[in-house]
Design a protein around this nucleic acid. Sequence first.
RNA 1: GCCGGGGUGGCGGAAUGGCAGACGCGACGGACUUAAAAUCCGUUGAACCUUAAAGUUCGUGCGGGUUCGAGUCCCGCCCCCGGCACCA
Length: 814
Amino acid sequence: MIEKYNPPEIEEKWQSRWQETRLYATSEDSDRPKLYELTMFPYTSGDLHIGHWYAMAPADVHARFMRMKGYNVLHPMGFDAFGLPAENAAIDRGIHPYTWTMKNVENMRRQFRSMGAMYDWSREVVTCLPDYYQWTQWLFLKLYEAGLAYRAKAPANWCSGCQTVLANEQVTAEGRCERCAAAVIKRDLEQWFFRITRYADELMQHEGLDWPERVKTMQRNWVGRSEGADISFSIEEYGLDEKEIRVFTTRPDTVYGVTFMVLAPEHPLVEKLTSPEYKDRVDDYVNRARRRSEIERLSTERERTGLFIGAYATNRLNGEKVPIWIADYALLSYGTGAVMGVPAHDQRDFELAKEFGLPIKVVVAPDGWRGEDLEEAHEEPGTMVNSGPFDGLPSEKGKDAIVAFMEKDGCGKKAVSYRLRDWLISRQRYWGAPIPVVQCPRCGIVPVPEKDLPVLLPQDAEFRPTGESPLKYCESFVNTTCPACGEQAQRETDTMDTFMCSSWYFLRYASPQHSDGPFDPEKLKYWLPVDLYTGGVEHATMHLFYARFFIKALRDMGIVDFGEPFIRLFNQGKIILGRQKMSKSRGNVVSADEYASEFGADAVRAYLMFIGPWDHGGEWNDNGLVGIWRWLNRIWNLVLAEATGTLRLDQDEELCRTTHKTIKKVNEDLERFHFNTMLAALMEFSNYLARVKETSAVEGSPAWREAIDSLLLLLAPALPHLAEELWERTGHAYSIHHQPFPAWREELVAEEEFTLVIQINGKVRDKVSVPISISEDEARKLALSRGRIKAQLGDRRIVRVIYVAGRLVNIVVK
RNA sequence: GCCGGGGUGGCGGAAUGGCAGACGCGACGGACUUAAAAUCCGUUGAACCUUAAAGUUCGUGCGGGUUCGAGUCCCGCCCCCGGCACCA
């Protein structure tokens, strides 16, 4: 009897050995081509659950595969360690965020180790440690110097749950906080922003990137570029400093159809233009709109509200005077915060006009229009009417014609508008990297000099969520001297959005201990950009978007020499349980530890890959794991049990061919991340080998030896512990993970025979095994001579015979 | 509403326009066992036909089309999942 397969024992054994021998250490001096394969690092929540394994284990398999294929692979791991949960733990349980985070890091390192991944831990980064965030601060200063960081008062997204502001990207479509799902409201606050909008056009381009189409689409939608015109309407008669209202429109061809103006309720001109008798009502409307969260705005959808403010603007193209309204469908944050009301050709304007009895003037006639009233806005192109000199033009041409005219006249010009807003990066919380600036009463905003970095987080802050940064109440932190004039000054107390930490961590892995800068330029040049990045699709318009902005900004400052951080991107699917996404807050987390300690990490890794295509995700199901567990035991026995077969091994050739066909299949599947079919092919192969071993005396057969060695090598990326153990037990030298991946020989893959399918009218009627060299004539003759076919044909007339080499003969009859 | 991705046995899923359902789970039958678990062997899309051997028909969300041949390509619809959405 052979020993039983005992994963806890062998997995622990190899994890220790790998660590002691630094098997996975990566260096830059290698003749092999470099390959940087990165998996998104986890937040330090404290536990790696099955969802993390699903993201990381298959990525590890691919990285191992590429290493065996001869690449010098960098496959690092680290921790995204700043963020609110740490601070909430401090508030709820009185644990310092640092203590809480580092304890979690400790536990997660242990869990990572038990997964058996090939991470080079000497390159680990932890974003909350000063030797990391010092460089996050340094990068902030660089962006500030480049004019890409600025402070401004603006309506910001305020999350009442997190008691801090959020970037637009962190607010869901329902107007809720991306993290805590609390309602988000608008608040006017002084905040720090990054000018990501400067890169709007470039961020829409994905040239040279091998990224999923949907992520590129999401990013393009997020930027939301619209081409049109800025048009000004005169308000000269009110004697204000502002002589005009500027609107952005994508439909300059409809400017003759303007019958009113709409200002966003928060628009600065509202107060100045409102006539006294409307003031109370307008104030009331504005206040209600301001207080309303995005959710409420959406829930009142379709019910058009608006209010005339008692003022008029003049359409400079036709001299018409139109009333000025406010309505909350005009958004201050988009375009100029003002809209020209063209009810005939914009559905929202149409609804407002209907609701309040405003005139509807058709200027782009639908086909066959006879002057009748419209049932709804006609938004499609048509022929221009009621448009003075432009009548009769197709409206698509009219756009350019009117813009050209306005540019000459000075009342409008071609313009582009974006949905994208600048990235709001300040947070009123403790557990983040402090923004390295000082507010001096004399000098204003003064950046902290590089030599004074890091600006350390004080240990002894109070973590009460007050809506202001806890740092504000920490006098030892706040009070400082101005780096410029040396007088008393105060530090900025907001901290940075944690997405800043993750916008550059992949640069740090190249030289994580480097102390003269965020990275060693030589090493960066060697490793970057990331060749393959894997992670969840949920970061399409957040992390991935910010990281691209960062790299483009650093490129323009000459700090890096590439403009895209991630060449290839692959999004794995989500693992769900009971039809729901796994998450700590839902309490439906499946702990990987338990399964790994019972069935082994190898079984869990393999099961996750076997569920289905990696980009699909799938439901966690214990039963499936059992199937893998049985298979691993069968492999164990196949390799180690004494051979009992007695027949002479006279199928060398078939054995060889099957081996090489499997090698080919596994190589091709791993290239494409088809882990599920790779495992299926290996199951077939091991089942086949078990049948051979049962009947034949395999001992001493070179073909058998090659088959078993190949099996172990092919399994090594997916089942690193089991493969290593069996490699050792079959008398090989340490380590299997330093072996080259098996390559197939094409001449050994080629079949000598194939099954010729014979169809009548496209239906399979017979099959026959024939030599691969069969000629078309022979195949046709053979097909027609088969008894079964003759019987089927009877006396029906053969119309034609289709022959597909290597596959089939199809006899078409009447 | 718009943009993606899907819909295949009891389940997860395979299938360069050419044998639909690989591989695995489950189920059923059998072997081993005092018994059970574990393990091993066999059967397993549906309907029909036959004592049996074999054979026939139907079958990849629905309806059309292209083709000698369609899960795969084209047109129209239904449903599910994800994203975006008062963006002027």
